[in-house]
Computed example of a mutant assay.
Amino acid sequence: MTNRLPLLTLTVAATFAGGVALAETGILTGESSLGPVLTNADGMTLYTFDKDEGGVSACYDDCATNWPPLMAADGAEAEGDYGLTERTDGTMQWTYKGMPLYTWVKDAAPGDVTGDGVKDVWHAAKP
C-alpha cells in the first residue's frame, strides 16, 4: 500500500492540472528537482528529443533501447496537447505538444531527471 500512495497523488495532480485521463494516456505530472515534469504511469520522468521533427520520432535501434518510447495502447486517441505519432513498425507513440515522449533507462526512481540535458538534445518534458 505504501508504494501506491505516490502514484495516487500523481493521478490527482494530473487530473486537476488538466491532463488527459490516466486510463487513456498514462501520462501524469510529477515533481522533480527541476520542478513539475511529465511522467509515465509509474512516475518515471518523460523526455523529448531535439532531433525529432514534425512530430515524428528519430529515435530507433540503440537510441530506443536507451530512450524507450512511451507507447500508446491500440485504439488510443489524441486529446488536447496529447497526440500520437506512428513509428516505423506501425506502433503508436504518445506526443506532448507535438514532441514524441520517451523514458530514460538510467533514471532509477520516480522523480529522477538524469536524462535532462544528455548530449544537449534530451530534455525533461514539462507541463
Rank of each mutant, 00 (worst) to 15 (best):
E77C: 05
D112V: 02
E86W: 10
F49W: 12
M99I: 04
K51G: 00
W122H: 06
M44V: 14
A23P: 02
A17N: 06
D81G: 05
G18H: 14
L70V: 05
K126L: 02
D112N: 09
A21C: 11
E79L: 10
L5M: 13
Y47M: 04
L34N: 05
W122A: 06
N40R: 07
G98Q: 14
P36V: 10
D52A: 12
Y82T: 04
A58K: 15
G80P: 11
V118W: 05
L38P: 03
L34G: 01
G75L: 02
A76Q: 05
V20N: 05
T48H: 08
A64R: 01
S32H: 04
G54T: 11
F49C: 03
A13T: 13
T29M: 03
L22A: 13
E31H: 13
L22P: 04
T65W: 09
P100M: 08
S57F: 03
L22E: 12
M99D: 10
P6N: 12
L7G: 08
Y96V: 01
D81P: 13
D52P: 08
V37N: 02
W94C: 02
P6I: 14
L10M: 15
G26Y: 11
P68T: 00
L34I: 10
T2N: 09
T85S: 08
I27F: 12
W104M: 04
G26Q: 07
G43W: 12
G83Q: 01
P36K: 09
T45K: 05
W104F: 15
E86R: 13
E31N: 14
C63L: 08
D112H: 05
D61H: 06
A23V: 12
A108K: 15
W104S: 03
R87N: 14
M44S: 11
C59A: 11
G90M: 06
N66V: 10
G111N: 10
G80K: 10
V121D: 14
L84K: 04
L5S: 13
D74G: 10
A108W: 03
A108R: 08
T103Q: 10
V20S: 07
V37A: 02
D81M: 05
Y60H: 08
R4H: 07
R87V: 03
T45S: 15
W67T: 02
G80C: 04
T11K: 06
L28M: 14
A14K: 02
P36N: 03
A17V: 06
D116L: 00
H123I: 01
Y60D: 09
E79Y: 10
L46M: 14
W94M: 01
T65L: 14
M92F: 12
D120W: 02
S32R: 02
D50Y: 03
C63P: 12
G43F: 07
T45C: 07
A124C: 09
G90Y: 15
E86T: 15
A73C: 02
T39Y: 09
P68Q: 06
T85L: 09
T95Y: 07
T2D: 15
T65Y: 12
D42C: 04
V105I: 15
M44W: 00
Y47A: 01
M44Y: 09
T15S: 11
V113S: 09
M1G: 13
L8P: 00
T25Q: 08
P127H: 02
